[in-house]
Nucleic acid binder design. Structure first.
Length: 591
RNA sequence: GGUCCCGUAGCUCAGCUGGAUAGAGCAUCUGCCUUCUAAGCAGACGGCCACACGUUCGAAUCGUGUCGGGAUCACCA
């Protein structure tokens, strides 16, 4: 039981003894302007007790001061009972944190969760929007693990379909046999180049047809290039050797490119599914649904489900000609995923433009009686917009992931060199640091915003290194480490338990914040919100910085005080490292 | 048009299981580096929390409606 829970129990007991009231007690942190750590709001008691709020507050405060060994003092402002804690409870709280290396992390709960994210298309390189997806997926995986879940990270690669054929056709027509090696272009970028190429030529054909008197609609449907792509898709599905060979070759290039990017941004998967393997799945589920009467057949043989009871519409699950639609294969892969991993939960990190799709998918699974249906969650997130509007790969108006990371790394290098604090680093150490800072900046930037909100990225203003940013938190960690190195150099041993030291308010602020770490992790997991962890890390770093400028650690004459501060800041550094770790961000020893 | 999401300072965002005088960062302005890293700290400036009504002792937070922005409603994925 932590301090807050104990205090709540004491208040509950007090309510019982004083007023014979049985009530759950909820505490809130006391506002900065008043003395106290926790505040209990007495307004709700006014009616039943028929006493004024200050009266209730005072008698409750008096009782707690006398009977609770946690409460040293109290004050009442209107209906707010502010409780000042005994100093030794701060040390109880702190010592518990100090002695627990895994403070904040829950024990394994023996249950599995599958997190699917990234899910790239193999016709274009990753852009800023994909980065948001990757970082959200990576971070929520880490957060769920910290909440005790056994996490499997899965990636479903969209490696087939008409859009892939578009790149392939364009390459066949205009590629002149070039390869990533011959062109000196990363494989995913090379494929992307031909995807854009396709779109350009396709649009030119449409314009020609329209000029020749076709309607725009017809032109779009009948442009020779599109026909070629559709033919190629058909050939691919028939297993045409030449087409499959080209498909394998080009996808191979793309995977090499993706792997390089994933390695650079520090994202990994436990399991990769390929849509070329799974796109035919789901038809047996359609049969099952027809047999159980969950689905119904129309005259043209197409299969549907009625979801009007769920507030949704009728939805097609299989075409009249027996071929799959998107949801068909998703039914199949969902079953497959739960069969493969026997997990309790599955999470899909997918943009909010698919909100409706997932509502439908989950509703169908429920109607089919899948036991896992309630464990399905769509972690929906908003698009990353540019000042000019939406990013469009076909039109080339995207912020490329590789380019962005490279630019940020250059900025980190420049900013760091200006400051001249790491002049003794080897080239490799320096490069390592620049990468760490660049990724810290980008990841933090994308994760600090609540996932479901769409966010704006302004390339001109770019990503900052000051203020509420990843590098600021990394910097805070490095500053603490610098002090700890100094202490080690002087042979100072940090004590394992602390007691009886008069506390400065910024010190108790820090202890209080540290004590909240477990509930922050819990909340982030419950809400699927890495932003909760990001905001916490910033809050902690900010509070430390304030303490740092007000008090000195190593120059403190009272050695007991000094040693306490060393212990305190060591836990702060550890907690910053853990919190940033949950965002997939590393923190440096020096910067 | 139906459904879903969003609307908080000039800009980017916290806060939303109802609680006190709504917080940060950026930008603008003032101070602070001979003491542990100034990527920092302290301060100033900046708000009808889109609007209206309702529930409540109490609403940025909950409910209803309006307005504004976005997404979606394909035998595309």
């Amino acid at each position: 039981m932590n301090t807050e829970q104990k205090l709540a129990a004491d208040i509950k007991q007090a309510l019982h003894s004083l007023f014979e009231v049985e009530q759950e007690v909820i505490l809130q942190p006391t506002r900065k302007d008043f003395a106290g750590t926790y505040t209990y709001v007495v307004f709700p008691l006014v009616k039943s007790l028929k006493k004024s709020p200050p009266e209730i507050g005072a008698s409750l405060g008096e009782y707690l001061k006398a009977n609770s060994d946690l409460v040293a003092d109290y004050n009442v402002v209107q209906g707010f009972l502010n409780l000042v804690l005994e100093e030794n409870t701060w040390f109880d709280t702190f010592n518990a944190i100090l002695s627990d290396e895994n403070f904040g992390f829950a024990k394994a709960n023996g249950k599995g969760v599958l997190v699917e994210f990234s899910s790239p298309n193999t016709n274009k390189p990753l852009h800023l929007g994909h980065l948001r997806n990757n970082f959200l997926g990576d971070s929520i995986s880490r957060i769920l693990k910290a909440n005790g879940w056994d996490v499997t990270r899965a990636c479903l690669v969209n490696d087939r379909g008409i859009h892939i054929c578009k790149s392939m056709i364009a390459y066949q027509l205009f590629g002149k046999g070039e390869t990533p090696e011959s062109a000196g272009i990363k494989g995913d970028h090379l494929a992307g180049k031909y995807y854009v190429e396709f779109d350009k030529s396709y649009k030119a054909e449409i314009n020609e047809l329209v000029a020749a008197g076709e309607t725009e609609e017809n032109a779009k449907k009948n442009a020779p290039l599109l026909k070629k792509a559709q033919e190629m898709l058909l050939k691919w599905e028939q297993g045409d050797a030449a087409v499959v060979e080209l498909w394998k070759r080009m996808n191979g290039w793309v995977y090499d490119g993706f792997n390089a990017t994933y390695r650079k941004i520090g994202v990994e998967f436990d399991k990769t599914y390929y849509e070329s393997d799974t796109y035919l799945l789901g038809k047996d589920i359609v049969e099952e649904g027809l047999a159980t009467g969950v689905f119904y057949k129309k005259d043209d043989n197409s299969v549907w489900i009625d979801l009007t009871e769920e507030g949704l519409d009728h939805k097609l699950v299989l075409r009249g000609d027996g071929t799959s639609v998107y949801i068909t294969q998703d039914l199949g892969t969902t079953d497959l995923k739960f069969k493969d991993f026997h997990s309790e939960k599955a999470i899909w990190v997918v943009g909010n433009e698919q909100d409706y799709h997932f509502q439908v998918l989950f509703a169908i699974m429920k109607k089919l009686g899948r036991s896992y249906a309630d464990g399905c969650y769509h972690m929906s997130y908003g698009m990353v917009d540019l000042p000019s509007g939406k990013m469009k790969s076909r039109e080339g108006t995207v912020v490329d992931a590789d380019e962005l990371v490279a630019e940020m790394t250059a900025t980190a290098a420049e900013t760091t060199k200006e400051r001249g604090k790491i002049d003794d680093f080897t080239a490799e150490e320096a490069e390592n640091l620049f990468q760490m800072l660049a990724l810290g900046a980008v990841k933090y930037f994308l994760l600090k915003v609540e996932p479901k909100k769409r966010m704006l990225f302004n390339p001109q203003e770019s990503i900052d290194f000051q203020g509420n940013t990843g590098p600021f938190i990394q910097y805070t960690h490095a500053r603490i480490k610098s002090i700890l190195r100094k202490a080690t150099a002087e042979g100072i041993e940090i004590p394992e338990t602390i007691a009886g030291i008069p506390l400065e308010s910024s010190e108790s602020d820090l202890i209080f914040l540290l004590s909240e770490f477990p509930s922050v992790i819990r909340k982030a997991g419950d809400d699927y919100a890495p932003s909760t962890v990001a905001n916490y890390a910033y809050d902690l770093a900010k509070t430390f910085s304030s303490f740092y400028s007000e008090f000195s650690v190593m120059n403190e004459a009272d050695t007991a005080k000094r040693d306490f501060r060393l212990a305190l800041i060591r836990v702060v550094a550890d907690t910053l490292k853990k919190a940033m770790g949950l965002l997939g961000v590393e923190v440096p020893e020096r910067m």
